[in-house]
Amino acid sequence: MSAIANETGLGRESLYKALKAGSKLRYETVLRVLSALGVRLTVTPKAA
């Protein structure tokens, strides 16, 4: 968690608060965490 906090520029405690159940997670935070994990979020249309 410390490494992800460093990568995202967020404090470790802030990151824990952002990711806890029931929190209102911001899109920007999601993108930062995913980037720190080395993954990308993509959107694709549903199959017809």
Results as ranks from 00 to 15, higher is better:
Ala5Lys: 03
Glu13Ser: 13
Arg12Glu: 11
Ala47Glu: 12
Ala36Ile: 01
Ser23Arg: 00
Ala18Trp: 07
Leu19Gly: 01
Leu10Arg: 05
Ala21Asp: 09
Tyr16Trp: 12
Ser14Gly: 12
Ala5Met: 06
Ser23Asp: 02
Arg40Asn: 15
Lys24Ser: 12
Ser23Glu: 02
Thr29Ile: 07
Ser2Lys: 13
Glu28Ala: 08
Val30Phe: 12
Val39Ala: 15
Lys46Gln: 13
Ser14Tyr: 09
Tyr27Pro: 06
Arg32Ala: 08
Gly22Ser: 04
Ser14Glu: 10
Met1Cys: 14
Thr29Cys: 10
Ser35Phe: 01
Val33Ile: 15
Glu7Ile: 01
Leu19Phe: 07
Gly38Asn: 15
Leu19Asp: 00
Gly11Ser: 14
Met1Ala: 13
Pro45Trp: 11
Glu28Asp: 14
Arg32Glu: 07
Leu31Ser: 08
Thr29Asn: 07
Leu25Trp: 04
Leu15Tyr: 04
Tyr27Val: 14
Tyr27Thr: 14
Ala3Glu: 07
Leu37Pro: 09
Ser14Pro: 03
Leu15Thr: 00
Ala36Lys: 00
Leu25Val: 11
Glu13Pro: 09
Lys17Thr: 10
Val33Cys: 11
Ala21Ile: 06
Val30Leu: 15
Ala47Lys: 08
Ser14Trp: 08
Ala3Val: 01
Ser14Asp: 08
Ile4Gly: 00
Lys24Asp: 09
Lys17Asn: 11
Tyr16Gln: 08
Gly22Pro: 00
Leu37Thr: 10
Arg32Phe: 02
Ala18Asp: 08
Glu7Val: 02
Ala5Ile: 02
Arg12Ser: 14
Ser14Ala: 12
Ser23Phe: 00
Tyr27Ala: 12
Ile4Asn: 03
Ser23Cys: 03
Ser2His: 10
Met1Ser: 14
Glu13Cys: 11
Arg12Asp: 09
Gly11Tyr: 09
Ala48Asp: 04
Leu31Trp: 06
Tyr16Arg: 10
Arg40Ser: 15
